[in-house]
Amino acid sequence: MEYELLANNYVNWEKTWPFLTEAVQETLTMVSETLVVGGILGLLLGITLWSLRKGSILQNTVLYQILNFVINFIRPIPFIIFLTAVQPITIAVVGTSIGTTAATFPMIVFCTVATARLVEQALITVPSGVIEAATAMGASKLRIIFDVLLSETLAPLILSYAFLFVAVIDMSAMAGTIGGGGLGNYAIVYGYQKFNITITWVCVGIIIVIVQIAQLLANFFAKKVLSR
């Protein structure tokens, strides 16, 4: 009874709509910024990790172990805890600990680390013999990275980025809870905290649509690349 009194499934769409579109925009901004910056940094870090591995082109076990440790240290931290734990650093870097910009910083860090690992895992599937064949032809290290490594793993890399996209949306929702804005924040504040299940599910629906579009695009391109 009490729940029914509190629960308010009525939505004034005219009032809600501007907030909702703003939330969607915030989410897309956070997610795309994170994916672009974290995705590129992660790609570079992933390539670096691959290069430093034993028997690889820049073999350096000590450096590899250090990077490996840092990544293994950060990765298992639940993102919502990571967010709060790095707040002092966030303030130092972006000057504030609330809002979408502040939320983007820890997202980028987390995304970089996750990307690096995914990229490394994709790259190690390239048989060392194929790298060796290119080396024997006189290919430079840079050539090997671009012409062999990345082009041989393009399809799994595309799928990894699709996976990351979903993970980053997930992160953005959590970032929302500490005032990061976006759909996560909106769903919590206007859906959960105001007992408006409709709003919550509208947010869920929008996220599902965004994720589906991304996944379909990724599958399409990966398939195109893989048609061999």
């Binding site: 064949a133 290119a134 024997a136 032809m137 061999r228």
Partner: peptide, 20 residues
């Protein structure tokens, strides 16, 4: 060694072709 390597071809047991 680029010049040297251009002057030496190599083939392998596992072929090592570029799958992509």
């Amino acid at each position: 060694l680029k010049q040297l390597r251009t002057n030496i071809g190599m083939i392998f047991q596992s072929f090592n072709l570029f799958g992509s």
